[in-house]
Design a protein around this nucleic acid. Sequence first.
DNA 1: TCTTCATGCAACAAACAATATTACATGAAA
DNA 2: TTTCATGTAATATTGTTTGTTGCATGAAGA
Lengths: 149, 149
Amino acid sequence: MKRDSRLSGVLHVLLHMAEMEGPVTSEALAGIMQTNPVVIRRTLAGLREQGLVTSVKGHGGGWRLCCDFDTVTLHDIYVALGEPAVFAMGNRTESPGCLVEKAVNAHMNDAFQQAEAVLMARLRDVTLADLSRDFHRGLQRRDHSHCSS
Amino acid sequence: MKRDSRLSGVLHVLLHMAEMEGPVTSEALAGIMQTNPVVIRRTLAGLREQGLVTSVKGHGGGWRLCCDFDTVTLHDIYVALGEPAVFAMGNRTESPGCLVEKAVNAHMNDAFQQAEAVLMARLRDVTLADLSRDFHRGLQRRDHSHCSS
DNA sequence: TCTTCATGCAACAAACAATATTACATGAAA
DNA sequence: TTTCATGTAATATTGTTTGTTGCATGAAGA
């Protein structure tokens, strides 16, 4: 399965934006992320709808953070992305006629739901400020520019 | 993302095998599962290596269970399948040079590892016998043959 | 006003992974 | 020796994520 790396990617983008002055263009962010500007726009569009970032067109335009790093959690970002599928495994059929499959699905769903609950709880525990703090700690240790990619 | 349904599928197969007398051919199982016999063979090959099933070639051959439903757990089956990837989400880069990415990855990995631990614990909690029991309970409630698919 | 720069968005292409299919070899029973 | 069934490799199909192109929209500046 191809893993969805949007959550990881958008967090990367947000932290970089926090380190930059003024609005940043999709082009610049795409450079940092080694991807395409359109991909950046697509991804940030979800965050804009949730009021986490703003975008301005034209000369001097670009993207700007407009959220509180102390209160926004990884879970908020996950939701802003449209709550993408968590698991790479799933049931063969979601609404089976077979009673065997029903029994299997019931137990599988139970296990996966519990795991998902834990994941969401953990995502809610971490704020963007937490990530930023850890990044700056890393910076202190190794005294060089914060990113090459 | 296309979800891996092998675990779900192989559990379905095992429970059906438990309801049948003598060896069952890949062809028959494929019929039940609405898939291809080769897919069945491929999947069961992993279980055979773990000593959970046996296969016999030629006339009167096929697949036979050779494990104790009371002690084999869903986790054992998961392992027999080669421990396929659990999550549909992942880090953009596993070994980043970027310190921002390092900070992001660290928190993400932590959250995912905890969720995975819970999932594995839940899979270890459920035996094949548990599934079989639930299936038979379902059978009692609705008095008809145990499967159409 | 007209050019330039930037996002918004839709349509399309490429890359990749899971599943399905085909073809042929191997081995056992009738 | 024919038939049946698994073993396995190679290939095709399908679906999803990511990347790309093209054009419209809107804002700043000359």
